[in-house]
Design a binder for these strands. Structure first.
Lengths: 117, 117
DNA sequence: CCCGTACTACGATGCCTATCGTACGAGTCG
DNA sequence: CGACTCGTACGATAGGCATCGTAGTACGGG
């Protein structure tokens, strides 16, 4: 009933040094993935994949989460049957100070500008 | 002998309102295009396409400049036979304050980190 | 032990794109 | 005009990628 243990299923992550700016930008240049990242930043906590209600199939969702993990934007860990996702804020801030906040602010502004329909 | 006149050949640009964050991020997620933008930011002036010595053919160079223009990152204008390129810093800053500087800083840091070979 | 839930793996598909080569248009200079 | 430079247009090619569907694996609960 308490938090399920972390499973041993391995999920390859890039080390901080392996994270590349172009990879991060490419990952965030997809609206679906930016949406995931914004939601994670908003709650400032880990969220399971199934928490997100995206207008695509689960296959596609899995794909997007993998791109985010492999680019170094997210960390993922299995906890029971759920796969929890967290922003790698410390690593990104360490490599590119201020960039993540700047990108999130830019996304917020665009959402406010366009979403006021 | 003075600066040649601006030609009438038209080059379609997005208006400021049409610029999309995902388009900008996609444009800058290509190392060749990021390199162009960094060089333009460094000199803080317009540069002709031929000024850049990129390790690709002229066809490909044209393609990259078009992507940058159509995403709203660059403004381009013909002056004589040369096509001059300038960063749309005001428009980008207006839409996404601080983002451009943040991205350039991130690119500088990565270049310093990786290029110290 | 069986079932349901959560997520994955794999293959297919159609589109996008980075790259090239060649042929062409626009402009400048002699 | 003629030659040269700068950049474009177009077609081809190869690889990437967002999406889907189906079948399958891992885990937890009854």
């Amino acid at each position: 009933m308490t938090s399920p243990a972390v499973s041993s299923r391995d999920l390859p992550h890039p080390t901080r040094e392996e994270i590349r700016l172009e990879g991060v930008l490419h990952a965030l240049s997809d609206p679906m993935r930016m949406r995931i990242v914004r939601e994670l930043a908003a709650v400032d906590d880990e969220l399971s994949c199934s928490h997100f209600d995206l207008p695509v199939t689960k296959s596609t969702t899995t794909h997007h989460f993998r791109v985010l993990r492999e680019s170094g934007v997210l960390q993922q860990v299995y906890r029971g049957t759920a796969k929890m996702n967290g922003l790698r804020k410390d690593d990104l801030d360490g490599l590119f100070p201020g960039l993540l906040d700047c990108l999130l602010d830019a996304a917020d502004r665009q959402a406010a500008r366009l979403g006021s329909a």
